[in-house]
Write a protein that binds this DNA or RNA. Structure first.
Length: 635
RNA sequence: GCUGCUAUGGCUCAGUCGGUAGAGCACUUCCAUGGUAAGGAAGGGGUCGCUGGUUCGAUUCCGGCUAGCAGCACCA
C-alpha cells in the first residue's frame, strides 16, 4: 500500500503496517515523539494497523493534549471501577483544560476530596504497569451484552445506529466504550491531578438524575503540570471576589444575593469607566437617555418579554396594575424613538443608555460580579436605514477595537447567523442582514468566525470575545440586528418620498455589563489598575509625620486641584510599614516626603511593583502622571 | 433550581471527642520619631449564620432555612 506524507512524498509499505513503524522508517526520533496519527483525515492510534493506501500525519506531544487527557479519563474510570466495583459510567471526554468522567459510584456513595486522593493513588498504580491501550471492534449486540450492568453505557450504545461497528478500548482488565484514539500505553499518564468533584446531570439535561463528575488534568511533562497548578493559584489570587474585598471595591450582602453594593473605591472605578464611556460615545455622535426602571406590564407584552421571560422578571402590583422591573432597556429606547417623528435624513439615531436592569437569576448561577441580579448595561439602540448598516456596523467595530485596546484586551469576533427553524422575518431580510454584518467586519479589516444557526430568533449578531491576561475568554461586546421589535412597536421614519418606512434597529453593548466588566478588569489587571482607572492614584507618605505633614498636605491639595486622586498616610507608623501598606493596596504611585524632599522641593517617587525610587520635582511628577493618564486614546 | 461542601470577632483562620471560645492582621491608647514591604507594649471587640430538635447543658450532634464555594442546568 502507498502511504503519502504531508509534504506530498510517498512510500510503499506492507499492508497492516502501523503508524509507529511508518514513523520509524523516517526517523527514530520522530517515532519516539509521536503519540497518534491522522490517517486519511481520521485519528488513528499509533499501533493500529493501516490496511490501505493512505495519507498520514503524525501527531506529537504538542498536538496531543486532548488525546492524553482523554486517555487519562479512561485511567480514572479504571481506578474508580477497581475501588467501586458497582460504579456505572456516563461519558468521560477531554476538555479544554483537562478531562472529566461522569460516574455513578453506587447506591448512596458520594465522592469526597479524600476519595479523590485514594482514586489518584490507584490511578498512579495502574498507570505504572505500562498497560497498552488496545482497540477492539465489536457489534452493538455484543457491546450491549458487555455493558449489561451499566445503564448509562447501555443508553449510549442503544442510541447508536444499528449495524455500525462499535469500538472499545481496553487497558488492563478495564474496557470502555470509546471512539479513540488514545496514547499507546498508560505509561504516558504520569503527570496528572484530580482537581475537583461535583454533580452533573446525565446527558446535560436538568430533568435527568445527576452523576458525580470528577475533573482532572494530565500533562506529558511534570513541569507542565506544576506550571498549570501554579497558574490556577495565580487565578485564585486574582479572583475579583477576593480582590474586591481586599481593595474595598464592592460588597454583596446576605440581604441582597446577587445585588452588589459599590463601595467608595469601587465607585471611583465605576465612575471613571462611565465617564470614559460617555466621552467616546459623545465623540461618536451618540445622544444619551435614561428610561424608567419599572414599566407597565402591557409594554412587556408588546415587547414579548412578558411571554418569554416572565419567570426571570421582578414584578409588582401597583393600583391593581402589573408592573415589571426592566430586564432590558430596549422597550424604553423604542418609546423614546416613538416620541417624535423622524426623517430619513436624521438617521442613524443613536440612543445610548447606561441602563440598570434586573433579572432573577437562579441562585446557583450567582458568581461575584460575573453573574448578578442587577447590572448596568452600557446599552445603545441605533435606528437606521438598511443601506446604512454596513457603514454603521463597521464604525462600531472600529470603536470596539479602540476601547478594548485601551484595556489591553485582545478579542475575536463571532458572527451568529439565522437559526434553522425558530426565526421571524423574511429569509431575504436575514440574508441581507447577515451579509451586512459580514461586510462590516471586512470593511473594518477584522476576521470573524461564523456560528451557523446561533443567532437570536429576531436577528443575526456579532459577538466580541475578549481574551484576558490569563487566557480566559469573555463575551462582552455584542452588536445585534433586530427585525422583531421595530415591527412590534411599529416604529417608522419618513422617507424621501414622504412615505412611512420601517427603520432597522441595532442593539449594542461594548462592556456588556459594567459590573461584570469591572470584575473582568479586576482579574485582568490583578487589581493593579492602570493609573487612569486606579481608585487611589497616589499615596503621599511623610517620613516623619510631625515634621513633614505640612508639605504633604500642600502636595495633596495640588494634586486634587488637577483631578488626580491622592491619599495621605498620616498615621504615626514607620515609613516601611506605610510603603508596604500602599504596595499591598496596589496604589500606582507612592510619594515619600522627608527632610531632603522638603529642602529641595522634591518628591521621592516609587511606582507600584517597583523597588526603585526617583527624585522628581513636584512639576516633573505631575507631568509624568498626567501624561500617563492621557495615554488613553480618546482621540 | 440540582449535587456536594462550607458558615467561629472588620479580615484570614485555629479550636471545643457536648460544659457558652483563641491567634495573627486591622482598630484604640501609650512608648518609640522612624528614609522605601510589618518597631514594641497594653486594651476594646465574638450569645461561634438563623431556627427547631436531642440533652441537665448545644458553637460542637440531628433536622429545616439562609448565604457562600465547586460544578451542572440556565444566561433574552
Amino acid at each position: 500500500m502507498k502511504i503519502t506524507f504531508p509534504d506530498g512524498t510517498n512510500k510503499e509499505f506492507k499492508k497492516g503496517t502501523h503508524a509507529y513503524e511508518i514513523a520509524s522508517s523516517i526517523s527514530s526520533s520522530l517515532a519516539k515523539k509521536s503519540i497518534y496519527a491522522i490517517v486519511n483525515g481520521k485519528p488513528y492510534d499509533l499501533y493500529r494497523p493501516i490496511e490501505e493506501d493512505a495519507t498520514i500525519e503524525l501527531k506529537t506531544k504538542e498536538d496531543s493534549f486532548d488525546v492524553l487527557n482523554h486517555s487519562c479519563s479512561h485511567l480514572l474510570a479504571s481506578a474508580v471501577k477497581k475501588l467501586y466495583p458497582q460504579a456505572m459510567f456516563g461519558v468521560g471526554p477531554s476538555i479544554e483544560e483537562g478531562f472529566y468522567y461522569d460516574i455513578q459510584p453506587g447506591e448512596g456513595i458520594k465522592f469526597t476530596e479524600t476519595d479523590l486522593a485514594a482514586i489518584e493513588k490507584e490511578m498512579k498504580h495502574i498507570a505504572s504497569q505500562d498497560l497498552p491501550f488496545k482497540r477492539i471492534e465489536t457489534t452493538k449486540e455484543e457491546a450491549l451484552e458487555l455493558f449489561k450492568n451499566d445503564k448509562y453505557k447501555q443508553e449510549i450504545i442503544r442510541d447508536l445506529e444499528d449495524g455500525v461497528t462499535i469500538t472499545l478500548y481496553q487497558h488492563g482488565d478495564y474496557v470502555d466504550l470509546c471512539r479513540g484514539p488514545h496514547v499507546p500505553s498508560t505509561k504516558f499518564l504520569k503527570n496528572f491531578k484530580l482537581t475537583n468533584v461535583s454533580g452533573a446531570y446525565w446527558r446535560g439535561d436538568s430533568k435527568n438524575e445527576q452523576l458525580q463528575r470528577i475533573y482532572g488534568v494530565c500533562f506529558f511533562e511534570e513541569k507542565e503540570l506544576q506550571e498549570h497548578l501554579q497558574h490556577l493559584e495565580e487565578r485564585a489570587k486574582r479572583d475579583h471576589r477576593k480582590l474586591g474585598k481586599e481593595l474595598e471595591l464592592f460588597m454583596i450582602s446576605e440581604y441582597g444575593p446577587g445585588f452588589p453594593f459599590w463601595l467608595p473605591k469601587g465607585m471611583v472605578l465605576r465612575k471613571t469607566l462611565e465617564n470614559y464611556w460617555y466621552k467616546v460615545h459623545t465623540r461618536e455622535n451618540y445622544q444619551f437617555i435614561q428610561t424608567p426602571i419599572m414599566l407597565n406590564r402591557t409594554l412587556w407584552e408588546i415587547s414579548g418579554h412578558w411571554e418569554n421571560y416572565r419567570e426571570n422578571m421582578y414584578t409588582s402590583k401597583i393600583d391593581d396594575q402589573d408592573f415589571a422591573i426592566k430586564p432590558m432597556n430596549c422597550p424604553g429606547g423604542l418609546l423614546v424613538y416613538k416620541n417624535s417623528i423622524h426623517s430619513y435624513k436624521d438617521l442613524p439615531i443613536r440612543l445610548g443608555e447606561l441602563g440598570l436592569v434586573h433579572r432573577h437569576e437562579a441562585s446557583g448561577a450567582l458568581n461575584g460580579l460575573f453573574r448578578v441580579r442587577n447590572f448596568t448595561q452600557d446599552d445603545a439602540h441605533i435606528f437606521l436605514r438598511e443601506d446604512q448598516i454596513v457603514s454603521e456596523v463597521s464604525s462600531l467595530i472600529r470603536l470596539y477595537d479602540e476601547v478594548y485596546s485601551t484595556f489591553n484586551l485582545s478579542y475575536h469576533i463571532e458572527l451568529s447567523t439565522r437559526p434553522e427553524n425558530k426565526y421571524i422575518g423574511k429569509l431575504e431580510t436575514w440574508n441581507i442582514a447577515e451579509e451586512a454584518l459580514a461586510n462590516a467586519c471586512k470593511s473594518a479589516g477584522k476576521d470573524f468566525k461564523v456560528n451557523p444557526g446561533d443567532g437570536a430568533f429576531y436577528g443575526p449578531k456579532l459577538d466580541f470575545k475578549l481574551r484576558d491576561s490569563m487566557n480566559r475568554i469573555w463575551q462582552c461586546g455584542t452588536i445585534q440586528l433586530d427585525m422583531n421589535l421595530p415591527e412590534r412597536f411599529d416604529i417608522t421614519y419618513v422617507g424621501s418620498d414622504g412615505q412611512l418606512k420601517r427603520p432597522v434597529m441595532l442593539h449594542r453593548a461594548l462592556f456588556g455589563s459594567i459590573e461584570r466588566f469591572i470584575g473582568i478588569l479586576t482579574e485582568h489587571f490583578g487589581g493593579a489598575f492602570p493609573v487612569w482607572l486606579a481608585p487611589v492614584q497616589v499615596k503621599i507618605i511623610p517620613v516623619h509625620v510631625k515634621n513633614h505633614q505640612e508639605y504633604v498636605e500642600k502636595i495633596y491639595e495640588k494634586l486634587r486641584e488637577l483631578d488626580i486622586r491622592p491619599e495621605m498616610d498620616l498615621r504615626d507608623e514607620k515609613l516601611s510599614y506605610k510603603i508596604r501598606d500602599a504596595q499591598t493596596k496596589k496604589i500606582p504611585y507612592q510619594l515619600v516626603v522627608g527632610d531632603n524632599e522638603v529642602e529641595h522641593q522634591q518628591l521621592s517617587v516609587r511606582k507600584y511593583g517597583s523597588t526603585e525610587t526617583k527624585q522628581l520635582s513636584v512639576d516633573e511628577f505631575i507631568c509624568q502622571i498626567m501624561d500617563e493618564i492621557k495615554t488613553l486614546k480618546y482621540k
